[in-house]
Lab assay of single mutants.
Amino acid sequence: KRPMNAFIVWSRDQRRKMALENPRMRNSEISKQLGYQWKMLTEAEKWPFFQEAQKLQAMHREKYPNYK
């Protein structure tokens, strides 16, 4: 399994919040909304999620050194 990228790190919590706030919203619509919201974030707002993704990638490399 691949390490999470910055968008996935960010969207994990956002998806839960959105699903709780909009229980009738379909998963496909939630995904569209999340994509739009991510695009609207500034680079500074995205930065912590890129840092977290880099940490996860480093841990993944250490744990699975022969992963493609």
Score class of each variant (00 low, 15 high):
Tyr67Phe: 07
Leu56Lys: 08
Trp38Gln: 01
Leu34Asn: 05
Gln37Thr: 07
Val9Ala: 03
Pro65Gly: 13
Pro65Glu: 14
Lys46Val: 04
Val9Lys: 07
Met18Cys: 06
Ala19His: 08
Pro3Met: 05
Gln14Lys: 07
Tyr36Ser: 10
Gln57Met: 06
Leu20Asp: 14
Trp47Asp: 11
Gln33Met: 10
Trp38Val: 03
Ala44Arg: 09
Pro23Thr: 07
Leu34Trp: 00
Tyr67Ala: 14
Met59Cys: 08
Asp13Leu: 13
Gln33Pro: 05
Tyr64Gly: 15
Asp13Thr: 08
Tyr36Ala: 14
Asn66Ser: 14
Ala58Val: 09
Leu20Tyr: 15
Lys32Gly: 02
Arg24Val: 07
Ala44Gly: 05
Leu56Glu: 09
Ala58Ile: 06
Trp38Ala: 07
Asp13Trp: 06
Phe7Tyr: 10
Ala53Pro: 03
Trp38Gly: 00
Gln37Tyr: 05
Lys32Ile: 09
Gln33Gly: 06
Arg2Val: 10
Gln37Met: 09
Ala6Gly: 08
Glu45His: 07
Arg15Leu: 04
Met18Phe: 06
Tyr64Thr: 11
Leu41Phe: 00
His60Ile: 01
Ala44Tyr: 04
Glu21Trp: 01
Pro65Gln: 12
Trp47His: 12
Tyr36Asp: 15
Leu34Thr: 00
Lys17Cys: 07
Thr42Val: 04
Glu29Tyr: 00
Asn22Gln: 06
Lys63Phe: 12
Asn66Lys: 15
Ala19Thr: 11
Gln51Cys: 06
Phe50Ala: 06
Lys46Trp: 02
Ile8Trp: 10
Gln37Lys: 12
Arg61Ala: 11
Gly35Phe: 09
Gln33Asn: 01
Ile30Gly: 00
Lys63Cys: 11
Asn27Asp: 14
Pro65Asp: 15
Arg26Leu: 13
Leu20Met: 11
Asn5Gln: 01
Arg2His: 11
Glu45Lys: 03
Ser11Tyr: 03
Asn5Trp: 04
Glu62Ile: 07
Arg15His: 13
Arg2Trp: 09
Asn66Trp: 07
Ala44Leu: 11
Trp38Ser: 03
Asn27Val: 04
Gln57Val: 03
Lys55Thr: 12
Glu29Trp: 14
Ala19Phe: 06
Trp47Arg: 15
Lys63Glu: 14
Phe50Arg: 12
Arg2Thr: 08
Lys63Ile: 12
Lys63Arg: 11
Trp10Thr: 09
Met4Cys: 00
Ala6Val: 03
Ala44Ser: 10
Lys1Trp: 08
Lys46Cys: 05
Ala6Gln: 01
Trp38Asp: 06
Ala58Pro: 05
Glu29Lys: 02
Val9Phe: 12
Gly35Trp: 13
Ile8Ala: 14
Val9Asn: 00
Lys46Ala: 00
Phe49Leu: 04
Glu21Met: 07
Asp13Ser: 02
Lys46Arg: 07
Met4Arg: 00
Trp38Glu: 01
Pro3Tyr: 07
Ser28Pro: 14
Arg24Glu: 13
Lys17Glu: 03
Ile30Asn: 06
Ile30Leu: 02
Phe50Leu: 11
Tyr67Leu: 12
Ser11Trp: 03
Asn5Pro: 08
Lys46Asn: 01
Trp38His: 01
Glu62Met: 03
Val9Thr: 01
His60Val: 10
Pro3Lys: 07
Trp47Lys: 14
Leu41Val: 00
Thr42Ile: 00
Gly35Lys: 10
Lys32Pro: 07
Met4Gly: 10
Met4Ala: 08
Ala19Asn: 09
Ala6His: 01
Glu52Gln: 11
Ile8Asn: 13
Phe50Trp: 04
Met25Phe: 05
Leu56Cys: 06
Leu20Gln: 14
Leu34Lys: 00
Arg15Ser: 07
Arg2Gly: 12
Thr42Tyr: 04
Phe49Cys: 11
Trp10Asp: 08
Glu45Phe: 07
Glu52Lys: 07
Tyr67Ser: 13
Asn27Phe: 11
Glu29Arg: 02
Met59Asn: 08
Glu62Thr: 02
Tyr67Ile: 13
Trp47Ile: 09
Tyr64Lys: 11
Phe49Ala: 02
Pro3Trp: 07
Pro48Trp: 02
Val9Arg: 01
Phe49Arg: 04
Arg2Pro: 12
Gln37His: 08
Trp10His: 06
Phe50Ile: 07
Gln37Val: 06
Lys46Ser: 01
Asn66Arg: 13
Pro65Thr: 11
Gln51Phe: 05
Tyr36Gly: 09
Asn5Tyr: 04
Pro48Val: 02
Gln33Lys: 13
Gln57Asn: 03
Met25Lys: 04
Met18Arg: 01
Pro48Leu: 08
Glu29Leu: 00
Lys63Gln: 14
Asp13Gln: 05
Glu52Arg: 08
Phe7Cys: 04
Gln51Leu: 08
Gln37Arg: 10
His60Phe: 02
Tyr64Ala: 15
Met4Pro: 09
Gln51Val: 12
Asp13Tyr: 08
Ala58Thr: 05
Met25Gly: 01
Leu20Cys: 14
Tyr64Ile: 14
Leu41Cys: 01
Asn27Cys: 06
Met25Leu: 09
Met4Glu: 11
Thr42His: 03
Met59Trp: 11
Phe50Asp: 11
Asn5Met: 02
Leu56Asn: 00
Arg2Ile: 10
Ile30Arg: 00
Tyr36Gln: 15
Ala6Asn: 13
Met18Ala: 02
Lys32Phe: 04
His60Trp: 05
Pro23Ser: 00
Trp38Arg: 06
Thr42Trp: 02
Glu52Leu: 04
Tyr36Pro: 10
Lys17Leu: 05
Ser11Phe: 04
Arg15Thr: 05
Ile8Thr: 12
Glu29Gln: 05
Glu62Ala: 13
Glu45Met: 01
Lys17Tyr: 03
Ser11Val: 08
Ser28Gly: 06
Leu34Pro: 04
Leu56Phe: 04
Ile30Asp: 01
Glu29Cys: 03
Gln14Phe: 04
Leu41Met: 15
Glu62Asn: 10
Leu56Gln: 08
Lys17Asp: 03
Leu34Ile: 08
Phe7Pro: 01
Asn27Arg: 02
Asn66Cys: 12
Phe7Ile: 01
Leu41Lys: 03
Met25Thr: 00
Met25Ala: 08
Glu62Cys: 10
Ser28Phe: 05
Glu45Gln: 08
Ala6Ser: 04
Trp10Leu: 00
Gln54Lys: 01
Thr42Phe: 01
Asn22Gly: 04
Leu20Lys: 12
Glu52Gly: 04
Lys17Phe: 00
Asn27Thr: 09
Ser11Pro: 02
Met18Trp: 04
Thr42Asp: 15
Asn27Glu: 15
Ala58Asp: 09
Arg2Gln: 10
Arg15Gln: 04
Glu29Ser: 05
Phe7Met: 03
